[in-house]
Design a binder for these strands. Structure first.
Length: 466
RNA sequence: GGCGCGGUAGCCAAGUGGUAAGGCAGAGGUCUGCAAAACCUUUAUUCAGCGGUUCGAAUCCGCUCCGCGCCUCCA
């Protein structure tokens, strides 16, 4: 089955292949580092991770650029309020963001680039746009004239031909001649950071950094540009206008947008008290894996209702898969192989792949895995699962985990060492042999307190981390 | 008001013309020193409501109700 994605540009699901070299040139909108990223942000960043893994699995090479917006109104305001320089302030949240990505096991883009490292290129691009007659200046700021770009609105599927200046109140303090015109360059204000690289003293508007950095690293036409659905308009629409007005080429072949996240059925907001960062969740003892699983399990184009019940469900589901893996690795099975099991494993693998190929239907992919787990567990109980079937079953699990990446527990820094666990298990086995169940239970309790769970099976003791 | 997305079991959620996946929770059972794990059985005659098209609709069309996003630099 071909790999297919829903393209916002065409509102259709289309077959995807990179334009050249078997390399996917992809740009994704990263965080604005004015605070810790929240769980809604990470829904989108998890979507990028899954996208990367799906593309890699297909054998494509990746050249993926993600930006860090480190100059912007809120950042400037907050940095000033803290008496810090822009760099001091954004460094803290950039570092926190990268740590959070690590905790969630997000596969890192080939390049993570900062807006402030590309001011000169942005100024050059603005000069280029001016040369093409797409801009105008007003009180030291430079604006993009959307009337100069006939395709404006093609991504968000809006018709702006009727929009006129003054059609709505402009809260921006800068003067524009058309309501939809947007700032490419904002004139310097007292006390605010500014640059003078050829566009006059000031700082870049939000949209220009993405167009400029994407083109610089990936070329004039990207294979994929992705972001949260709320960026479709105006951010991505404006990126298209800038880039295409400048190059005359289509900016990106595919536009992918991840849907919104809600919390307990409501819009997440600080005033409702349902606004969470990853740190908040980890502090409540939810594991990074269960957050990752929950975010990954709902297909990216469907609004995700993030609930604490959902987190607990995710943790239980992960446990089941880990237990299954443990059973495969530690169980004793009769020699030989089973043709039936070989077929089931092959069927599960192809169902898993097909679901992902279909615009990354992760929910359906999960169903294929769980169905296989149930089938093979039943076969094990019935004695029909053979030692020779372990490899193919582990392969299904490996396929799952190469995408979902939740089977390996995140170890705490104070975790007990494997060898110490094994030693206590040996002692407990002796205690059980002499029917000293009190000591046996005591050891199990001790280990449980250190997040290690013991299970007695007919093939002996096995253990796992909680 | 404009554009777009969605309403499937207690919760989460697949399925877009052929007779309701999967996960979690719940109930019963097998196994067990205890516990855990695992498995089996069970939980939607029905897919927001109404009408229509069709041999056949959760799936297509129309209307209604409800929720959400964007339309002011918010993933």
């Amino acid at each position: 089955m071909p790999l297919r994605f829903f393209n916002t540009l065409t509102l259709a699901t289309e077959e995807f292949t990179p334009q050249r070299d078997n390399t996917v040139r992809m740009y994704t909108c990263g965080p604005t580092v004015y605070d810790f990223a929240h769980i809604g942000n990470f829904r989108t960043f998890t979507f990028y991770d899954l996208l990367r893994r799906v593309l890699k699995r297909r054998g494509f090479k990746l050249d993926h650029v993600m930006n860090i917006t480190d100059v912007e109104d809120k950042i400037i305001r907050n940095a000033m309020a803290h008496g810090q320089s822009l760099g001091e302030y954004t460094e803290k949240y950039t570092k926190a963001f990268l740590e959070d990505c690590g905790a969630l096991r997000l596969d890192s883009p080939e390049r993570i680039v900062r807006a402030t490292d590309h001011i000169k290129e942005m100024a050059e691009a603005i000069t280029g746009l001016t040369a093409k007659g797409c801009t105008y200046e007003s009180e030291g700021s430079i604006y993009f004239r959307i009337a100069a770009f006939p395709g404006y609105g093609k991504l968000s599927h809006n018709d702006f031909t009727g929009i006129r200046a003054g059609a709505r109140v402009d809260v921006d303090t800068y003067e524009k001649t058309d309501a939809r015109d947007f700032a490419l360059w904002k004139a310097a204000k007292d006390g605010e950071p500014s640059w003078d690289e050829g566009a006059g003293p000031g700082r870049p508007g939000w949209h220009i950094e993405c167009s400029v950095m994407a083109i610089k690293y990936l070329g004039e036409t990207l294979d994929i540009h992705a972001g949260g659905v709320d960026l479709t308009f105006p951010h991505h629409e404006n990126e298209i206008a800038q880039a295409e007005a400048l190059t005359g080429k289509p900016f990106s072949r595919f536009w992918l947008h991840s849907e919104f996240l809600m919390v307990e059925g409501q819009k997440m907001s600080k005033s409702l008290g349902n606004y969470y960062t990853l740190r908040d969740l980890f502090a409540q003892d939810y594991s990074p894996e269960c957050v990752r699983y929950l975010l990954a399990s709902v297909p990216y184009r469907k609004a995700l209702n993030f609930t604490f019940d959902g987190l607990k469900s995710a943790a239980t589901a992960i446990e089941r898969l880990r237990n299954y893996k443990l059973r495969l690795e530690s169980g004793k099975f009769p020699a030989g192989t089973s043709e039936e099991m070989r077929i089931r494993a092959a069927r599960a693998s192809s169902a898993f792949e097909d679901a992902l190929d279909d615009d990354m239907n992760t929910a359906q992919a999960l169903a294929a895995v769980f169905e296989f787990v149930r089938e093979t567990n039943t076969a094990m109980d019935a004695g029909e699962f053979r030692a020779g079937d372990v490899a193919s079953a582990l392969d299904v699990l490996e396929r799952f985990d190469s995408l979902f990446d939740v089977l390996r527990p995140s170890l705490r820094s104070d975790a007990i060492a494997d060898a110490d666990v094994e030693a206590l298990i040996a002692e407990r086995t002796l205690a059980k042999k002499s029917r000293n169940f009190q000591r046996a239970d005591q050891i199990r309790q001790e280990l449980l307190a250190r997040e290690v769970v013991l299970e007695d099976t007919k093939d002996g003791v096995r253990w796992k981390r909680k």
